[in-house]
Amino acid sequence: MNLLIDVLIAIGLVVLAWQALVGGSLFRGIVMFIVFGLTMALAWARLGSPDLAMAEAAIGAGVTGALLMIAYWRLRALGASRPTPRSRLRARLALGVGVLSSVLVAMIGLAAVEAIGPGGEAGQALAAALPATGLGNPITGVLVIFRNLDTLLEVAVLLAAYVASRAALGDDKAALPLPPAQDAPLVGALVAVLAPLTVLVAIYLLKAGSQLPGGAFQAGAVLAAGGVLLMLAGRLHPAPLCGLGLRIALVAGTVVFSGVGIIMLALGQPLLAVPGTWAVYLIETAMMVSIGATLVLLFAGSAGLSGKALR
């Protein structure tokens, strides 16, 4: 019975990938991609990783989907030409390459499943070292304590992606106004309920992340979803200037994380050592704020945000 559910979700993944990528209109492809992301979240849940399920649903499907949609909308508004389809010969060659690469991934994956067996050495070492940290969630342990250089650089990569996007887009012509918000009575009521709820859920995920599934990335993505919601409802607008508060929010994760690490170095500890559970919370809070702010600004395609429309 359990196997049957796995097989169904696995078949769903393959079919949705095909629907998202081959044939059909681009808009349909984006919608199918979002459904693919949500099905991936189901797969992660079946694999016993609720952390990944939440991250995939919020970031992989939700925010990525929103970014793809807004980019699609901007391309349409720019009146960009649609490319001509590729030749038949190329399609046949691509089919062969696709099938061969698929076989290759299957062989590597199946060999790895047999070779490693239950629980790698790193996983066992992690399970042995985790109780000493006071954390209950091994993923948070890896992200903030054991492999925290990866996580610090990851937050830096997100910041770099935002800065690079700003550089690529240049002036705010690219930050197209979103569709005008209809002042429908339901929108206001919905926003009034959902916006505080996203903040509440984000803080809960952050707090739960030390012991239970959750953490800064999921919390940041939920915050970003709240921001996107406010933009779509016409409560937040792209602005040409980045205010001081927003700047602090953008760099908070990188600065606090590396700041704690450097202070520990000055105190004679190894670089990036984490002094205790309070520091884990401090770092994760700063990361949550940064991730949320960066993702909303990437969606807005602008330097800043303001409560008032420009035009």
């Binding site: 993944l13 393959v14 990938a17 990528l21 390459v97 696709g98 099938v99 698929s102 991934v105």
Partner: peptide, 9 residues
Amino acid sequence: AAVFGIGLY
């Protein structure tokens, strides 16, 4: 593996 192949195709 199937999803990867579809993606590359």
